[in-house]
Design a protein around this nucleic acid. Structure first.
Lengths: 252, 252
DNA sequence: CTAACATTAAAACGAACGTTTGAACGAACG
DNA sequence: CGTTCGTTCAAACGTTCGTTTTAATGTTAG
């Protein structure tokens, strides 16, 4: 779906270019002159339209995360409504959370894989203003999904669920960032598929493949057997933080 | 003969401080003046001892990754020897790969959690010289472990294994980076445990907890049911070795 | 002691950074 | 027409960046 972006507008051109360059180089390594140069606008345009470089980055994310998290909440609303008060299946919850995100990767109007990669790389940036911003943007969504998972997995300690949500976010972030040592893999995958028929788009294929591979992995991790704690026998562990810290390596 | 007398003071102090500051601020946002100032050495000392800022970062990693990947290889050697030519268990492989890393987090002499966090955050940095460096440092280890996993999971398509190795690396990187929206979790965990007895160290506890929680998750993800491919044409996408295509790409 | 070498010190380099300024432009409107 | 107002422009601001230079200071061996 060819979307006619109003690229004639200075403001949008800056946002689009900044999104790409921040993804390619990171925030610090991307200068205002690189952005305004590539967008073919005046150097002062960023400060005029957004106020500062930090505010520009925030706006780059806001226009995408707004849509994303809103749709995540709606997806959860829909599921809970059709469940009629009962708990959801973990797979449904993961599909709503991660599927909504990964579907952005297939839609260029929503930023496509460019935004997904930017998001994955920025989530680990240590800059304080970035962390603060993300914390605010994600607060409600994370809380809602955490509650949903608590209800979906009543026998799993809540602390354990939070850890695993943490791990799932990491697996996804890293995978969509796609900067790592295994990068070639995706190339192979896409290459294998390329000659079959009229390809929609390399990034679109990648996004679909990624979703297809990632979701079973996440679900398997989420539902993995719990680590063994030394506890009084027959205890019905609720949320209680386990007392004994095991020195021994986990026997998996 | 000559000892390492020359590397005694200034050089090591720079490395220690750089490790911490790169972790806290990222590579680009950490200036030479911040490093030399905190290390209480002259500004020119970095260029004298290491040549450049890039070379400094490489050396920060080299002194840790050398130990890490060497021990990873040794651990794998040991397992394969005692298996006498047979395949290893996936849990053994993961323990060797991730356990070796996570044990660094408990040992201050090996960099402790500071280095682990730095590693997790740097793995997603887009700078070319960083990616190139990591690719070289990890090449042998990744290849060896990939082969071990292929043999341990003969019924799983190799491409799928690589994807999941990818996901596992992500879950671990993100978890040890510890910058994300769920950051509070670790604080709660550590706090719950703190008053118990003479605490080894907050970071040590965190490293142990992390290993204990992460390993079952990774194993669950690795062994999750395979995704079903709903390919329109043919659909007998059994995904056997696909020999030619696989060898066509050079591994990292 | 002296010569040679390795390290540290202070100062400066040019380049690039994010941001600000003040003028110029162009459409809108009375 | 003149005025206003949102936007764009070229130029410069002061600061900080990584690196280099040159001299001073140990340190070691002949």
């Amino acid at each position: 779906m060819s979307e006619q972006k109003t690229n004639s507008d200075t403001r949008d051109r800056i946002l689009d270019v900044a999104e790409r360059l921040f993804m390619e180089n990171g925030y610090e390594a991307t200068s205002m002159r690189m952005i305004t140069g590539a967008a073919e606008v005046n150097l002062a345009a960023v400060n005029y339209h957004f106020g500062s470089k930090e505010a520009l980055l925030r706006e780059v994310f806001r226009r995408r995360l707004g849509w994303l998290n809103q749709n995540r909440l709606q997806a959860l609303d829909r599921l809970e409504e059709q469940a009629g008060g009962g708990p959801l299946k973990p797979s449904q919850i993961l599909e709503a959370f991660f599927g909504t995100l990964l579907r952005m990767g297939e839609d260029k109007a929503l930023g496509g894989m460019t935004f997904l990669r930017l998001l994955g790389r920025t989530l680990t940036e240590p800059a304080e203003f970035i962390r603060t911003f993300f914390a605010g943007e994600y607060a409600e969504v994370i809380d809602r999904y955490k509650q949903a998972l608590y209800r979906a997995l009543p026998d799993v300690p809540q602390a354990e669920i939070v850890w695993r949500l943490h791990f799932m976010l990491g697996a996804m972030s890293y995978a969509i960032a796609g900067t790592d040592v295994l990068r070639v893999v995706t190339g192979v995958e896409v290459g294998d598929l390329a000659g079959e028929r009229p390809v929609p788009d390399d990034d679109t294929i990648l996004a679909r493949r990624l979703a297809q591979r990632l979701m079973p992995f996440l679900l398997g991790g989420l539902r993995a057997p719990l680590p063994q704690f030394d506890e009084p026998a027959g205890s019905q562990k609720k949320e209680l933080p386990t007392k004994a810290a095991r020195e021994s390596r986990t026997q998996i």
